[in-house]
Design a protein around this nucleic acid. Structure first.
Length: 475
RNA sequence: GGCCCCUUCGUCUAGCGGUUUAGGACAUCAGGUUCUCAUCCUGAAGAUCGCGGGUUCGAAUCCCGCAGGGGUCACCA
């Protein structure tokens, strides 16, 4: 049996956003599930739109997400090269076959002339079809003119793994360009040649190509090729739900998500479940489960909106699931500046306290800064507090003095601190909302922090007491 | 405009003729977890399944119209 071979074939014109990644992910899942191969091919046939470094960026993104490819431009493989710009000879060969069989011809018109035809059709409110203007006696192709496919319009029915049975009439089939006048092939031609030569079994692509499929089918026929299995993945929509997600609508580079501390596992799970599910109510899928359970038939037909809230939740979930030591390693580059002189033991204690609060790793500094540096007293923390804001300064002062007196006697173990804080509640007759809030604010100067006793343990006696003094002197 | 695709809570979705008073998750709101934030737990609100016809004893599920959205009609992919 032929082994399953899928490919991801981006053009190096920029970074990869979630939409592109999803296409890659689905192809990767299909290949891994079937124990086949996943191939990366760069479609760099448009020199004008090419962006320097984009190819490397794409490869970095795939690797960062763990979407490893078996063959690719930087990896080689039995069907190398994997860059279309290096495969021009191939396209020439196949083009020659078409010329020989009378299925390709040189386009004698200037672009201005073609544009005139187009305008004419547009004015008449009918779709532009080049074949209506097909030259009767085209000149021999010398490579300086575009080479066009001589189409054979007919209706087609075909099957799409996601969308089901599809069909289209002959009116959509046209003489499209195979090779541009600059010698480079168009996508329409190149991908068909490459997929055939590379023995690709499944084409998974966005729905912007759907309207062209009949043209491809016509070309496959002319080349004597059997079309691969096709699957059309719907677009991911911008948050407003109107148009497809694009870079200009704020679609972020996936590598930027990684830089903000979104975990690859979370990103992969999120992107997979955007438009796919296994038919059950399961939400969290490990990579192994995705490979095992993924199927193109369960991919949603309609477009899905990108909901960052959901990604945030899922990422937080994956962060919470991580063993502390593993999280500690991942968080290495995210500590606040002030943490650099602290040792691993201390930082791990801090990390354990904020693990359940982290939605993404880049939040670490704002959540933990007070563990590493004394922040200036912020009077608003008290004045804005529901209960504390109502108390007179003298009352606050005396409460805090009592707290200080008790804590001075403590050995700052969790057990002792908890007990003392409880005693303090009875002694002062105050509710936790008042007493604990006050001490918490005094010792952290942060609007939010982990629980009081836990925080004090990590902060330690000396630092806690000196901060209480600092607060006292401001009252 | 022609052609093609799509349409279930705000969002992601389950559902493939009857077990559905349409289920779950995110977000929202309320309560609980000795304090804030978060986690966790419980609960609430939230979709006449785009609309209109049919078929059927019975339809979110099948058929036909319509509407809305998207894609495409490049020497871009």
């Amino acid at each position: 049996m032929k082994s399953v071979r899928t490919r991801f074939a981006p053009s190096p014109t920029g970074f990869l956003h979630v939409g592109g990644i999803r296409t890659a992910l689905f192809g990767w899942l299909v290949a891994r599930q079937a124990k086949g191969q996943f191939i990366l091919r760069l479609e760099d046939t448009d020199q004008a739109r090419e962006v320097a470094g984009a190819d490397q960026h794409i490869m970095d993104s795939l690797r960062a997400l763990g979407l490893d490819y078996d063959e690719g431009p930087d990896k080689g493989g039995p069907y190398a090269p994997y860059r279309q710009s290096e495969r021009l000879a191939s396209y020439k060969n196949w083009a020659q076959k078409l010329i020989d069989s009378g299925r390709a011809y040189a386009d004698p018109y200037s672009s201005a002339e073609v544009q005139a035809f187009r305008d004419q059709d547009q004015k008449a409110k009918r779709p532009f079809l080049y074949r209506n203007y097909r030259p009767a006696n085209p000149p021999a192709w010398d490579g300086s003119q575009p080479l066009r496919f001589k189409s054979d319009p007919k209706p087609y029915k075909w099957h799409d793994e996601v969308l089901g049975d599809l069909s289209a009439g002959p009116e959509v089939i046209d003489d499209f360009i195979l090779i541009k006048s600059d010698g480079y092939p168009t996508y329409n031609f190149a991908h068909i040649v490459d997929d055939a030569e590379m023995e690709i079994t499944h084409i998974i692509r966005g729905q912007e190509f759907l309207a062209s499929v009949p043209n491809y089918l016509n070309l496959y026929e002319a080349l004597g090729l059997t079309p691969p299995i096709m699957a059309t993945v719907p677009h991911i929509l911008a948050p407003d739900g109107k148009k497809k997600l694009s870079k200009r609508d704020g679609a972020k580079d996936v590598l930027d998500y990684m830089k903000d501390g979104f975990l690859p596992e979370a990103l992969v799970n999120f992107i997979a479940s955007l438009g796919w599910n296994d038919g059950t109510e399961q939400e969290i899928f490990s990579r192994q489960e995705l490979i095992q359970k993924f199927s193109l038939e369960h991919v949603q037909k309609g477009g899905a909106r990108f909901d960052e809230q959901r990604l945030l939740w899922m990422n937080g979930h994956y962060i919470r699931e991580l063993p502390l030591d593993e999280l500690y390693e991942k968080v290495a580059d995210f500590w606040p500046e002030e943490a650099k002189n602290y040792d691993e033991t201390y930082k791990k204690q801090v990390l354990a306290l904020v693990q359940e609060r982290l939605k993404y790793l880049a939040e670490l500094p704002e959540l933990t800064r007070f563990f590493f540096v004394d922040l200036p007293v912020d009077p608003e923390l008290i004045s804005r507090h529901k209960q504390l804001g109502k108390l007179a300064k003298n009352d606050l002062k005396s409460l805090l003095e009592q707290g200080k007196a008790s804590l001075e006697q403590s050995d700052f173990t969790a057990i002792d601190l908890t007990e003392r804080l409880n005693q303090l509640l009875e002694l002062t007759g105050q509710r936790p909302a008042v007493l604990f809030s006050l001490i918490r604010i005094a010792t952290t100067q942060a609007p939010a922090s982990p629980s009081l006793a836990e925080t004090l343990v990590v902060l330690g006696k000396e630092r806690s007491l000196s901060r209480i003094d600092q607060q006292l002197s401001s009252l």
